[in-house]
């Protein structure tokens, strides 16, 4: 039976070898970061798993408004979605855009059903996701507008292309909503942020 002290040599050797390989991969330019060459499956799995658990952990304490089915919210969200999201996430009846085909990782097509909860969707919309092209809309939009977007995104998989077009056509203009948001901020000064 080997003593504990005799195990230190191989362990240190293995750690050193691991560090050297890691150093070589990072500094040699070996790993291709081009967006037109997908990650290997293990790397993709690692990044996807980190992303999913990170979102899940951070969205846990978010309080979801109970009016996500409110038609006014959905309508306001539709206008914002058409302006800010559809170029990457597409919409019912919409062909793939140049940007959606070039993004990597691909932006999920939100007309398909998702496993994300409303709180997780809100967190993603508000904070964005590093190195995916998903921006943090919370930098420029208040929580209320972001919940409008979530309300619409929840509704999106049920919509036909005609229903989508109608909703967008009748939605308040994005600029008007932004102006209203700024005016509300001037009046209120400080609301609760999640």
């Amino acid at each position: 039976m080997r003593s504990a002290s005799s195990l230190w040599g191989p362990l240190v050797g293995a750690l050193l070898a691991f560090a050297i390989v890691g150093f070589a991969v990072v500094y040699s330019g070996l790993y291709n970061i081009a967006a037109d060459v997908p990650h290997t499956q293990p790397v993709y799995w690692l990044l996807e798993t980190v992303r999913d658990h990170s979102v899940e952990a951070r969205a846990r304490d978010i309080v979801v408004p109970n009016d996500l089915n409110d038609p006014t919210r959905i309508s306001k969200g539709a206008g914002q979605y058409a302006d800010m999201c559809s170029a990457c996430h597409l919409a019912p009846g919409m062909k793939r855009t140049e940007i959606s085909q070039g993004l990597y990782p691909r932006a999920p097509e939100l007309r398909r059903k998702t496993n994300l909860t409303p709180a997780e969707q809100f967190w993603v919309v508000k904070h964005g996701i590093k190195m995916t092209g998903m921006p943090a809309w919370g930098v420029t939009h208040d929580d209320d507008l972001l919940w409008d977007m979530v309300a619409f995104i929840r509704k999106l998989p049920e919509l036909t292309s005609e229903q989508y077009e109608t909703l967008v056509k009748n939605a308040p203009k994005h600029e008007e909503m932004m102006q209203k948001m700024e005016m509300d901020h001037d009046h209120e000064h400080g609301g609760e942020h999640q």
Partner: peptide, 23 residues
């Protein structure tokens, strides 16, 4: 006509990226 099915690395990589994003 919607599918540009060329047999080259560019197309193969693009479809692989699409597949990775699928549920």
């Amino acid at each position: 006509e919607g599918h540009h099915a060329e047999c080259n690395d560019t197309t193969i990589n693009a479809v692989k990226a699409d597949i990775q994003a699928m549920s």
